[in-house]
């Protein structure tokens, strides 16, 4: 297969919102520097922070880290007000990998994927669904899709895979 699509197991996923001086404090509590530019990500071990907006990050971590992250940030809320919302079940992550991964995504994503370098991620569109698209490697993408859109997006990707398999 030139490209595979698989549904990934759930992870702990949070929407983190914080601004100004709070950013550094929250980063410190998480043990990493929250990236300041939209599309950039930072990693510490299994913990990843991807900047989606000027005051918005998505955090991912193993499931068993959920409560600890929530507790760590709750502890600094009073001096660094922020919003940490559990969205672990909001999205389903699809891994799209293989030499034709970018081509498969081009059936629904209007962005120039050549300009989404490995290690970056952005919120964008796939068909008419809002998604967060991560590029984990030159031929490896991850797409976080709101759960209810998956019954639309997944079969569309399958049609695209069949088309690629047909070779035309």
């Amino acid at each position: 297969m030139q490209v595979t699509v698989e549904e990934l197991a759930p992870v702990a996923r949070f929407s983190l919102r914080v601004r100004d001086k709070g950013v550094a404090a929250v980063g410190k509590a998480l043990g990493l520097t929250l990236p300041g530019r939209i599309g950039e990500r930072a990693d510490r071990g299994d913990l990843t922070a991807l900047c989606l907006g000027p005051d918005e990050w998505v955090l991912t971590a193993p499931e068993d880290a959920r409560d600890r992250i929530a507790a760590d940030l709750a502890a600094i809320y009073a001096r660094a007000p922020h919003s940490l919302t559990d969205i672990s079940d909001r999205e389903i992550s699809l891994r799209i990998a293989g030499p034709a991964a970018a081509t498969l995504l081009s059936i629904g994503c209007p962005r120039d994927l050549d300009r989404l370098e490995p290690g970056r991620g952005v919120r964008t569109l796939f068909d008419s669904a809002t998604v967060v698209l991560w590029r984990d490697g030159p031929e490896a993408f991850r797409m976080d899709v709101w759960r209810s859109f998956v019954p639309h997006v997944r079969p569309l990707l399958e049609i695209g895979q069949e088309e690629l398999a047909a070779g035309l």
């Binding site: 919003s83 969205i87 079940d89 909001r90």
Partner: peptide, 12 residues
Amino acid sequence: LRVWLTSTTEHW
């Protein structure tokens, strides 16, 4: 205002 909005429609 120090307040943030997050859609959780699909989380629940």
